[in-house]
Nucleic acid binder design. Structure first.
Lengths: 113, 113
DNA sequence: TTCAAATATAATAATATTATAATATATGCA
DNA sequence: TGCATATATTATAATATTATTATATTTGAA
């Protein structure tokens, strides 16, 4: 299982508009850099930097085809994570019921008098 | 559904050791600030800041019990997200099969000669 | 063998995030 | 009323993230 630190690193890496767009695209299939460039409105070096970061964290990899680099997903958590993020949650969680307990006492009976 | 921007904000908010610990604790139930303080080794004002940030983003809320503030989860995506992050994924995704296609041509037949 | 295309790297300036330190507020109790 | 407890707010210094700019590398083709 991922350590706390690893889980946080993963979230940080995904939490960027360019990188999440790249990942959403790669979920659909392999894409070379210039294909990605067509829908990311950032500079070519910047795309490279984001791809490099994603690769450093073991989230994607590539194979070389002539002058093209074709990137693809390798981390299996990504499709699941992206799916949940898009899921439509209608309701808030239920608030705490009448008498929640903490280490410091019971509410409201014990603590309030 | 959450917009891209909202999804990124959400990820950023969770991607912090103190905040993810707070959320993992609140998934189990209500906790007041001093209860949270017992397992977070950061200063009291810092805890307050993180709680305030989580509340600003509509992830948690609180009720007041005397001098205590009792925080609880309200965003229903959080338990699902935390669960996935802890899930044990054994295998990498399968690499691309023999002839992936991009807008710029077919591999390897068409492009490599 | 030179050239252009495709992509990467490195340095840096701009910006955002974070923890710290100091202070403030609110509540219950003596 | 006055004090201690529980928590929040504000300003700021330290640090991390990001985009930009300039340059480098690799490959296929003329």
């Amino acid at each position: 299982m991922r350590s706390l630190g690893q889980r946080i690193e993963l979230l940080k890496v995904i939490a960027h508009p360019a990188r999440i767009k790249i990942l959403e695209e790669l979920v659909k299939g392999v894409k070379c850099v210039s294909d990605l460039g067509e829908f990311l409105d950032i500079s070519q070096p910047n795309i490279s930097q984001h791809l490099s970061l994603l690769r450093t964290f073991g989230i994607i990899d590539y194979y070389q085809d002539g002058r093209l680099r074709c990137y693809y997903l390798i981390d299996p958590i990504i499709p699941d994570l992206l799916e949940i993020l898009k899921k439509d949650y209608r309701e808030s969680l239920p608030g705490p019921s009448c008498c929640p307990v903490t280490k410091r006492g019971t509410y409201p009976g014990e603590r309030r008098r």
